[in-house]
Design a binder for these strands. Sequence first.
DNA 1: TTAAAATATGAACAAATAAACATATGTTAA
DNA 2: TTAACATATGTTTATTTGTTCATATTTTAA
Lengths: 101, 101
Amino acid sequence: MEETYTEKAVGNLAELFKIFGDATRIKILYAMLDAELCVNDIAGRLQMSQSSVSHQLRILKTSKLVKSRREGKSIFYSLDDEHVRFILSMGMEHIMEGEEK
Amino acid sequence: MEETYTEKAVGNLAELFKIFGDATRIKILYAMLDAELCVNDIAGRLQMSQSSVSHQLRILKTSKLVKSRREGKSIFYSLDDEHVRFILSMGMEHIMEGEEK
DNA sequence: TTAAAATATGAACAAATAAACATATGTTAA
DNA sequence: TTAACATATGTTTATTTGTTCATATTTTAA
């Protein structure tokens, strides 16, 4: 019973959470909670440059937090699976609980 | 319906996930999943320096992921609440799901 | 109170990374 | 094919951060 995980799994897990550990990406994810959005939509809403948003979307997509779909000139992004929602809400609950104390 | 969150909440949430975004801290948290541990225990198990573990434990404690209890010369650390377990397991599920594809 | 054990803290350094800027790629319509 | 729109990709820079080393606290036992 040395370890219940592999070195690789721990590394991947840390990498995953690192993705959530940036306010810009959290905002992007929140924006997509109930709507599919294209890059320009996001850049407009969050007052960010197109380049910056695109860079972050690539990171989000690589780690499977977000998926994309092309429609003409635009590419629509949305949350990839339900884990993303759960992780976000668990995190938010933890934050809020801390506020009360 | 501009935003469903405050700037501050997003910042706090990102800070929280940033804590999970480090392999060393993940290992420390995993080690405490089913046992209260003191600094030296952790340092020994994870082959880390005492100083490094202590620094990380302070970070974990500050963000309320871990709590401590003194017993003589030792200080025992354990997970602070259930959210920590949920967040870890959701993350792990996401990782595992990605493996299958 | 002095020594030893356990833990914490401060400073310095190297590695990781987000944003900005410039440019490239891909898609549609004329 | 060409122009214009939408998105992606390099590169550089400034900031953040984990570890190490040295040192400081705190607690217990002699």
